[in-house]
Amino acid sequence: MIETIQLSKAFKERTVVEDVDLYLDKGESVGLLGPNGAGKSTTISMISSLLKPTSGDVKLDGKSVISDPGNIRKVLGVVPQEIALYQELTAYENLKFFGRIYRVPKGQLESRIQETLELVGLKDRQKDIIKTFSGGMKRRINIASALLHNPKILILDEPTVGIDPQSRNYILDMIRQLNESNGTTVLYTSHYMEEVEQLCNRVYIMDHGKVIASGSHSELLSILSNEDTMKVQLNQMNEDFIKAIQDIDVVRQVEETGDGIKIIAKKSANIISSLVKFADQQNIQILNFQMENPSLEDVFLHLTGRTLRD
């Protein structure tokens, strides 16, 4: 349905997106995962025709979006990262405004507004002014504004930034419902790995403007198929201990957690005896030890040497 071909964007001398290839099939839910500044927002700005790429192309059903942006705009709903609403107007007035500019037929506008308000769970607050809403409610109306014209493709740019867990879950459920029940194609950008894991069939991982890995959840996790992840809870730790663990041949990575360390090591390698020995030498007590299933966070750590929130 949508594909980008060698998509690049440079601002003066700085390249922020470089040779990005991605595609979305009809009805798919695809995640674009990466830390802040990875180039996710620039990529979706180019896909949605808001920003012209320096090179490369975006195609919708084989036709270039760059030369004819009108095609994609008809079927696209974009939820920006900012709360792009008139704060002085009510939720209803905002939706009416967006419905009008998206040319929702007059006869259908009222019912579409009510349906959308129902979907985002704010029907009873429709007469309230946006600036009186909580952050989560504003985010929900922000999403509703992009849904009035029944878009076939929905692009969401970090729609859950800065909101409470309850609102976040509500938004995630809503997007899942749109994707599964309505067949809306979803491109979801986030730096929260657990959101992408929950929502998306396929994931693109971006860092420093490039796609560094892509695939389904299991495909990405298979990157770590030759490795084991161990979580070790300690009563204390010090640099010498961490360095000693890092120096073990089979250890790929050591990351400090709040109460201990996380070790990524070669599959089936026995490092327990070394771990116990070094802990003993440093007078460190091992409180708990467990093998963990790898997550996308571990994949990102493996690929970049950094966590998503670094």
Binding site: R73, V78, P80, I83, I101, Y102
Partner: peptide, 13 residues
């Protein structure tokens, strides 16, 4: 600045 302009650009206006 607040993103409303971009939303309007994506509309038929």
């Amino acid at each position: 600045v607040y993103g409303l302009w971009d939303r309007m650009i994506l509309s038929p206006v």
